[in-house]
């Protein structure tokens, strides 16, 4: 007996607004599915897929104010509709936080990077979402916007608090993720990202890791470590972070930090790797990220 696939109720309406306000009014009833690049949505909504459509499809791709990178008063802002290709090619990010273009560069294929957006990557809330990992170590926040009581309202939420499980976030159905913001990193801050896989593209990460810290006279401070694909959401390795605070990196320190990071994770066995192998990879990556720094 074949299983009856979970069918969406038929879509009744479609709109492609060109401003944020227009989009927020359209989704105010909470009964809209949001379309950005579609590279996750198209597959997830196929008959039998995990995501049923809501009553209407609201295509936000035409909202030009939500595409691009800017800086104001020491705050960086990335519009939700900025594509992965845009991030890969962005001069400002390349100067200020090269870790973001580097991550974008090993994301999927050229065609997927051209379509996929950073807002879609975050809202899709995959534990393996590539852009989420380096954004976490930059202490990024997301701006959520809604239309309430006849006006546009926004709230800023730490990316760290945004995810509640695989594919689940605190975003309400009437909210749009409009921007990602973070402080322009200190000049002494270094940040790196490593993603596993025999070839970087078209490879859902088996494990990914990002690390950032300020290094002053050899001593680390403001240490952040994020790990992808080793738990229900992308997660912070808080024990390893706390341990590294104030330390000078030696082989011993790196090994202990790596061990603690593996403890912070909760990997599972699946088709791509065993939990044991994932813990092993975490340790290799944390050591590598710390060593790369010690040369720089």
């Amino acid at each position: 007996m074949s299983q009856v696939p979970k069918e969406s109720a038929p879509l009744e309406g479609y709109a492609a607004p060109s401003t944020v306000e227009e989009a927020l009014r359209l989704i105010a009833d909470g009964d809209a599915t949001i379309l950005a690049g579609g590279t996750d949505l198209m597959l997830q909504t196929k008959p039998g897929g995990r995501l049923p459509y809501r009553r209407k499809l609201v295509n936000i791709r035409r909202i030009s104010e939500l595409r691009g990178v800017s800086e104001k008063d020491g705050r960086m802002s990335i519009g939700a509709l900025t594509t992965i290709t845009d991030i890969d090619n962005n001069d400002l990010l390349n100067t200020v936080t090269p870790v973001l273009p580097q991550t974008a560069n090993c994301f999927a294929s050229s065609q997927i990077r051209n379509a996929g957006t950073v807002g879609g990557n975050i809202c899709n809330a995959s534990p393996a979402g590539d852009m989420i990992v380096p954004l976490l170590v930059l202490d990024a926040e997301v701006e959520l916007s809604a239309w309430t009581n006849g006006a546009v309202t926004t709230r800023l939420v730490s990316l760290d608090k945004f995810f509640t499980g695989p594919g689940r976030t605190i975003k309400q159905p009437n909210e749009l993720l409009t921007r990602i913001v973070f402080a322009r990193p200190d000049k002494k801050l270094f940040a790196g990202y490593i993603k596993s896989g025999p070839r970087p593209a078209l490879e859902i990460s088996t494990v990914s890791a990002a690390l950032s810290a300020i290094r002053d006279n050899g001593k680390l401070s403001r240490v952040r470590i994020a790990l992808g694909a080793v738990g229900p959401t992308v997660l912070r390795a808080v024990k390893a972070e706390a341990y590294l605070e104030g330390k000078t990196v030696t082989a011993q320190v790196a090994a202990e930090a790596a061990r603690l990071a593996a403890e912070d994770a909760s990997p599972i066995d699946d088709v791509r790797a065993t939990a044991w192998y994932r813990r092993h990879l975490i340790q290799v990556y944390i050591k590598r990220l710390l060593e790369n720094d010690s040369q720089g």
Partner: peptide, 24 residues
């Protein structure tokens, strides 16, 4: 989205047409 056989150019940019909504 894995194989590229469906690649088209939209406003000069390459995309997988199997993942693109026709309405777009």
């Amino acid at each position: 989205g894995e194989c590229g056989a469906c690649t088209i150019l939209v406003d000069g940019v390459s995309l997988n047409s199997c993942l693109m909504y026709a309405a777009e």
